[in-house]
Design a protein around this nucleic acid. Structure first.
Lengths: 110, 110
DNA sequence: CATCAATTTCGATGATTAGCTAAATAGCGA
DNA sequence: TCGCTATTTAGCTAATCATCGAAATTGATG
């Protein structure tokens, strides 16, 4: 979870995630949205990959990056719950009474 | 919002916020929970203050730090909504249809 | 096989950051 | 005023980070 927070600490990476929310895009296509060099973007992708926030799919010489929303979701959820913040899943007030496949967090930080 | 994400990128600072969730504590009391020097903790407090995540109240020579939950909440909320993640307020599925006092975000990042 | 395109890896650099010790500031009580 | 306590500021170092250009990798195509 630390890796996730480190990853989203950077504005460029947050924007990459936001772009990927809609459709998965190639590394080059993503890079075109930012005023930095390809190698720099590649490094950002590596950080996001390391945090398991995105997934790479190589097709020929092209790499498609895809958002792993559940990982982002779990991190945000876990942290938020530490604070009683309503940051909830798609089902906030859990009507099942606790049959979550996500995880029950209480000290999942660090 | 960038400042908030930078602030919570550090595990020590996240833990400080978590400690502050219950009761407000003095700088020294907070410091006692970590294996680093007072000046280092003071620097962490400064970052959290800078991000407006905590508030300082000086009483004599002692400083009480208090969590500003709403700021954390807004940042988390705003970011999460960018992804359609349910990270919602205390009222997730907004039955009012959009009468929120928090803010309506759509490009609030960066 | 030679070349082109997409992307990453390498190696370097300047900026930021977390950490420390020592010193400064500020309030309080004798 | 002197000394004690709480906290921050100052000055420094080591590590991490974002960035770049050049080179390497990998796959496709003529």
């Amino acid at each position: 979870m630390n890796a996730v927070f480190k990853a989203i600490a950077d504005p460029t990476r947050r924007k990459v995630l936001a772009l990927l929310r809609q459709r998965s895009m190639t590394a080059g296509e993503l890079s075109d949205h930012f005023p930095v060099s390809r190698p720099t973007m590649s490094a950002h992708f590596a950080v996001l990959r390391e945090a398991d926030l995105i997934e790479a799919n190589k097709v020929g010489t092209t790499i498609f990056y895809q958002l792993k929303l559940s990982v982002l979701e779990d991190a945000l959820l876990g942290f938020s719950q530490l604070f009683g913040i309503g940051v909830a899943d798609h089902m906030t007030t859990d009507p099942t009474g606790g049959a979550r496949p996500k995880a029950t967090r209480e000290g999942a930080d660090e």
